[in-house]
Simulated scan of single mutants.
Amino acid sequence: MLWVKSLHIVFITSWFAGLFYLPRIFVNLAQETDPTSTTRLLMMARRLYRFTGILSLPAVALGLWLWLGYGIGKGPGNGWLHAKLALVVLVIGYHHACGSLLKKFENGRNVRSHTWYRWFNEVPVLLLLAIVILVVVKPF
């Protein structure tokens, strides 16, 4: 079980690293006026989005293995797991929202400012903080 848990943590960390950086690229894209730089940033964003999508699969699969295979979070007094799973669904939704925003940039239809993307960039930090607190403290 410790191997599965260790790999789960590594893949979660890698997935979140991409979710921290991708909106930062969006900040730069929202400010960029040079077409060559825009093309380069779009290429970086596409690759990062694709790679973080790949990383999310083993992260979620290993989490399910811990939950269903080893019974982590089952039984009474494990409401923290339900809250954590709800936040994981929000993380997956955030990831897909990044994909939608990327498509808008690719199609030249971005209407949001760099300031909006700076705030959007803070969402995964808050989600990760809440998830870690739920897993470590298990408040309910």
Rank of each mutant, 00 (worst) to 15 (best):
L128A: 10
V132P: 03
V135N: 04
L2V: 08
L126M: 06
A30V: 12
F105Q: 01
H96Q: 10
L42M: 01
G18R: 06
L102V: 08
V125S: 02
L128D: 09
G77Y: 09
V88C: 10
S113Q: 07
L64I: 11
V60M: 14
A97R: 05
L101C: 00
I9E: 09
V89P: 07
W67K: 07
F51D: 05
H82M: 14
V136Q: 02
F105E: 03
T13F: 12
L102W: 12
S113N: 03
L68A: 13
I131N: 03
N110A: 01
K84G: 05
A83L: 13
G93E: 11
F51G: 00
F140D: 08
P139T: 04
H96K: 01
R24M: 08
L127S: 03
G99L: 04
A59K: 05
P76A: 14
T39S: 02
L57P: 07
L57W: 15
G63Y: 15
T13C: 01
S100Y: 15
G71T: 06
A30I: 11
I54Y: 15
L42Q: 06
R24F: 12
A97L: 12
G93D: 12
W65N: 07
T39M: 03
T115R: 00
K138I: 05
R24Y: 14
A97N: 05
V88W: 15
R46V: 03
Y117R: 00
N78E: 15
